[in-house]
Write a protein that binds this DNA or RNA. Structure first.
Length: 426
RNA sequence: GGAGGGGUGGCAGAGUGGUCGAAUGCACCGGUCUUGAAAACCGGCGAGCCUUCACGGGUUCCGCGGGUUCGAAUCCCGCCCCCUCCGCCA
């Protein structure tokens, strides 16, 4: 949600920035018209309420003193009708205004490259070199089943397409990665671990921006009205919704493991093989709640924390700044981490780290009181994957595969795995 | 799922139709006193929206949404959440 002041007073700039995201500005125009009408009617109705309140006090006084309140009561009766008419219109306007407001995306930060799609993304750095092999590397969708650790058919049998069952060392690798990442972030990067609900209500989904616009991307739990979380960002960012925090307690930094559930509507035919695009996957998520003037330093820090995971696992990757046209709805700036996948001979997204500035905070009513004692102001929220577990499994299988079809276990995972090699036997 | 109790400002907790955005205490901020601190005393101290250059003014908010009334924290209806007990259950 964008600030009203900004929409009203800096309309041209907002329009221009929305255009960089591919927005045609019609929603903005609608918002402006609704806002204008709302303010006119609000002025009138509040004036009438003031008169009503005065008259009610007068009635009370007259009755106490045994006087005649009849004529004033008639006046109030008339006022009530007018107020009621206006309020009906006001509530219509406010419903429409809310809808317009909730459907406007965030504005990009000035450092974000402008462009229509991923072709305008900017590569910031590349760490490590694409893994080289003296044999033809396999894709994980061949390696996994051959090792007996990934079973796409049986996953589909019990659920459907885009669900997978992991067995033996594959299941243990997921668990090892979760523990390894949480340990790294909590003991070395200063995060507080949190285990949030895996289902949330509509208010939480609205707070972080998944609703109302992207309802079809979510799994809704009928008939309860809950949603399966698409990312831990949703429950964790909303944890402090409605609170007014002390600036002294900021930044708040959470690390959370959760499964994530995505309907993947509109992605039919994409990434149909393997673990890349699933309806359910594990992820360790990092969330920062910061003051308004520290969020961009925090974004660098958060991104660095996620990169560290790849570095320690010795996986080659690059860091990319998403262009205005490629960013998500709530983000003002996003870095994607793309890991090298030999089986696909390409860099693929494994983490997405965003600063949402006050966009989500306005929706979820996340505020803090400045240390100088001023009025409460909105937090800045940031989130990033640290990392997506399923895709990390893919990256490890493909980058650490050996000529004999086994997979070496990265050094730092060996204590978690209890072995240094994944073979068909385990 | 059933029965009962409860949701009031940062916290605790009064308030059962008008003078209540709301006592009191704690916390917090400023001041007096003190070498300093504590204590004591004095004063201040919720949020949203509209309006104003500003000072200020108006309006709304006592879990949420409706209703009754000239007037609702207070009465009525629906919903949500929390607590206790019962049932079910990992």
């Amino acid at each position: 949600m964008l600030a009203k002041d900004l929409l009203r007073n800096d309309t041209d700039r907002v329009r221009e920035l929305l255009a960089t995201r591919g927005d045609d500005g019609s929603l903005l125009d609608r918002w402006l018209a609704l806002d204008q009408e709302r303010r006119e009617i609000l002025g009138e109705v509040e004036d009438q309420k003031r008169r009503r309140n005065e008259a009610s006090k007068e009635i009370g006084r007259l009755k106490r003193e045994g006087g005649d309140a009849e004529s004033i009561m008639i006046e109030v009766g008339e006022l009530k009708k007018k107020i009621s008419t206006h309020e009906t219109r006001l509530s219509e306007l406010e419903t429409e205004l809310d809808s317009a407001t909730l459907n406007l995306p965030n504005l990009p930060h000035e450092s974000v490259p402008r462009g229509a799609d991923e072709n305008a993304n900017r590569v910031e750095r590349q760490v490590g070199e694409p893994t080289s092999f003296d044999f033809e590397p396999k894709a994980h969708w061949d390696l996994g089943p051959e090792l007996g650790i990934l079973d796409f058919e049986r996953g589909a049998r019990v659920a459907g397409a885009r669900f997978t069952a992991s067995f033996g060392a594959g299941a243990r690798l997921e668990r090892a990665l979760i523990s390894f990442m949480l340990d790294l972030h909590t003991t070395e990067h200063g995060y507080r671990e949190v285990l949030p609900p895996f289902m949330v209500n509509a208010a939480a989904m609205t707070g972080t921006g998944q609703l109302p616009k992207f309802e079809e991307d979510a799994f809704k739990v009928s008939p309860h009205g809950y949603y399966l979380i698409p990312t831990a960002e949703v429950p964790v960012t909303n944890l402090h919704a409605g609170e007014i925090l002390d600036e002294a307690d900021l930044p708040i930094r959470y690390a959370a493991w959760t499964p994530c559930f995505r309907a993947e509507a509109g992605s039919y035919g994409k990434d149909v093989r393997g673990l890349i695009r699933q309806h359910q996957f594990n992820k360790v998520e990092l969330v920062h709640l910061t003051s308004q003037d520290t969020s961009y330093e925090a974004l660098e820090e958060l991104t660095g924390n996620a990169e560290r995971v790849l570095q320690v696992l010795e996986l080659p990757y690059r860091t990319v700044t998403l262009s205005t046209g490629d960013m998500g709805f709530s983000a003002a700036k996003t870095y994607d981490l793309e890991v090298w996948l030999p089986g696909q001979n390409a860099y693929r997204e494994i983490s997405s780290c965003s600063n949402c500035e006050a966009f989500q905070a306005r929706r979820a009513n996340l505020r803090y009181r400045p240390t100088d004692g001023g009025k409460p102001c909105f937090l800045h929220t940031l989130n990033g994957s640290g990392l997506a577990i399923g895709r990390t499994v893919v990256a490890i299988l493909e980058n650490f595969q050996q000529a004999d079809g086994s997979v070496e276990v990265p050094e730092v995972l060996r204590s978690f795995m209890g072995t240094d090699r994944i073979t068909a036997e385990n």
